[in-house]
Design a protein around this nucleic acid. Structure first.
Length: 492
RNA sequence: GGCUCCAUGGUCAAGCGGUUAAGACGUCGCCCUCUCAAGGCGAAAUCAGGGGUCCGAUUCCCCUUGGAGCUACCA
């Protein structure tokens, strides 16, 4: 069988992570089977359409590496791939159903329906379309349509029996017909609803496997009724559980949950996001967890799909991102980190290459880089308390001593390289019978103002350069002297 | 409310009648170390509850509970 799958988003905004995952799985399945992956735009709800959203979808899929074989902007033999451009295709099919009795025109206005719905709700009853217009003789109905009266076409769901389908993941799913509503197939504006368009288009486009979210699970039995009415073979269905933000909330645009684009902008790398997303709701069955897109195509298997919703866990994404960043070639890293360094270091004289070396394995997400290096641009305000460190065996007095000893040594150096600085400070410790840390820690605090920094004392000293290093040490010495003096007087 | 679906640690999850119930993230120790990170070693932590079926249930069935989806001229 030539497998054909499709990703069919509505252009209502950016592509969110759940949508991206659906697209990914759909793509993987098609590619694994040597089939086609198709993009179709479902824009039949004109009111919800967001301008520019279609382009955003193209862009996201491209950035994600999910290239589609057919679609609005790449063409194909089954076009058009935008539903509004197919609008005239649907009515004839609907009329075919009207003819056979599987559907019927309805002239009830929205207001009338609302009134009846409200009345039912008031009585505490559940409302479902009452088949009011099914009673209109077909000739009369056709005549009213021809006259130009506004109408919709509804699916005629049987009053009894059950509708069902087989899902590749969920198995047999069925629903009693009497709980199903006579859905609108063709709206008053002539456009089809999703309920109808998905069936017509999937059939016309030769889609063999439909992968989509579980929000369609309970309405798919109805779609199968349509396939049966047409005498068409229904595709194989694979419904996908949703991606959740937490236990009870789906990831959604509405609450500002990040889109794929947002994540990239924040400094997550593409492959890490894809890798992470792939494993959210799918397991390869073995212990591998790093996959390229090609490896995913090989490894993907419907059997590994999870039926339960998966919670989007940022910590794991961060971990993946860190791993991907650490593993990327240094030159690539340097190129990627440079704009983030520029945010706080632009204009400074700074060895970006050396700084990037220090940052490379410490970068979890690029947007955290500016905060990590801003101390190089400007010495942060700090409390003398951080000079005291139990493991380093330092306190204010020792720190002051260390700074005073180090200052002239560093000042006298011509070669201010890391190695030279390191050797000088280590020797100083030995000569004064101090622990290495008793020199290193105070100096690093003085020149960084931070308890933890990317790189140690010598790297920071080198990056700052001799002049700035000495200036910060002088400041540190004064700061320490002041507080020690104050402490002394107040104790007397 | 009705209908549909789901349920293994905090999170992602393996498991598919007999296991010491994998692994990963995270958390917590220890080691390494001029800080942090990385790295090494180790630890705590899961079968929602109750009934069945069976020699034997995490695994099969039912109920309860919890969660999600649908219930639009939205998708």
């Amino acid at each position: 069988m030539n497998v054909r799958t499709r990703f069919a988003p509505s252009p209502t905004g950016y592509l969110h992570l759940g949508g991206l995952r659906t697209a990914l799985y759909t793509f993987l399945f098609a590619k694994q089977n040597g089939g086609q992956f198709i993009l179709r735009i479902e824009d039949t709800d004109q009111e919800r359409e967001v301008e520019g959203a279609v382009e955003l979808i193209y862009q996201s899929l491209r950035q994600a590496g999910l290239t589609y074989d057919e679609g609005p902007d790449v063409g194909g033999d089954y076009g058009p791939y935008i539903q509004t451009q197919r609008r005239e295709l649907y009515l004839p099919y609907a009329m075919e159903l009207v003819k056979s009795g599987a559907a019927y025109p309805c002239f009830c206005t929205k207001e009338e329906l609302q009134a009846r719905r409200d009345a039912a709700t008031e009585k505490g009853e559940q409302w479902k379309y009452d088949k009011h217009c099914l009673n209109i003789p077909k000739e009369e109905a056709l005549a009213r349509m021809a006259k130009g009266e506004s109408y919709v076409i509804r699916q005629n769901i049987p009053l009894t029996g059950v509708a069902s389908f087989e899902d590749a993941l969920y198995g047999h799913v069925e629903a009693p017909c009497d709980t199903l509503d006579d859905n609108v197939l063709i709206k008053a504006d002539g456009l089809p609803t999703y309920n109808f368009a998905n069936v017509i288009d999937d059939h016309m486009m030769g889609i063999t496997h439909v992968m989509r979210g579980t929000e369609y699970l309970s309405s798919t039995p109805k779609y199968n009724l349509l396939y049966e009415a047409f005498g068409w073979q229904a595709p194989i269905y694979i419904h996908l559980s949703p991606v959740m933000k937490d236990a009870s909330r789906k990831l959604s645009k509405r609450y500002g949950d990040p889109s794929f684009e947002d994540l990239l902008a924040q400094g997550y790398v593409r492959d890490a996001v894809i890798n992470f997303i792939a494993l959210l709701g799918w397991s390869p069955g073995d212990e591998r967890e790093f996959f390229t897109l090609d490896e995913l195509i090989q490894a993907f298997d419907l059997k590994g799909l999870s039926k339960a919703p998966a919670i989007f866990n940022t910590e794991k994404l961060v971990w993946f991102n860190h791993e991907y960043i650490s593993r990327m070639p240094f030159e690539d890293y340097l190129a990627m980190v440079t704009p983030w360094l520029d945010q706080v270091l632009a204009g400074k004289q700074m060895d970006y290459r050396r700084l990037a070396e220090l940052l490379h394995t410490r970068t979890e997400v690029f947007n955290r880089v500016p905060d990590m290096v801003s101390f190089l641009a400007q010495l942060p305000e700090y409390d003398n308390a951080i000079y005291t460190h139990k493991k380093m065996k330092t306190d204010a007095d020792i720190s002051l001593k260390a700074l005073k000893l180090s200052r002239p040594v560093l000042a006298a150096m011509e070669d201010f390289s890391e190695d030279a600085v390191k050797e000088a400070l280590m020797n100083l410790a030995v000569q004064n019978e101090m622990k290495t840390g008793q020199i290193m820690w105070p100096v690093r605090i003085a020149i960084s103002g931070l308890q933890s920094t990317p790189g140690g004392t010598t790297e920071i000293a080198y990056l700052l350069g001799k002049e700035e290093t000495l200036r910060r040490m002088d400041f540190g010495i004064q700061k320490l002297e002041r507080s020690i003096t104050n402490a002394g007087t107040s104790n007397v």
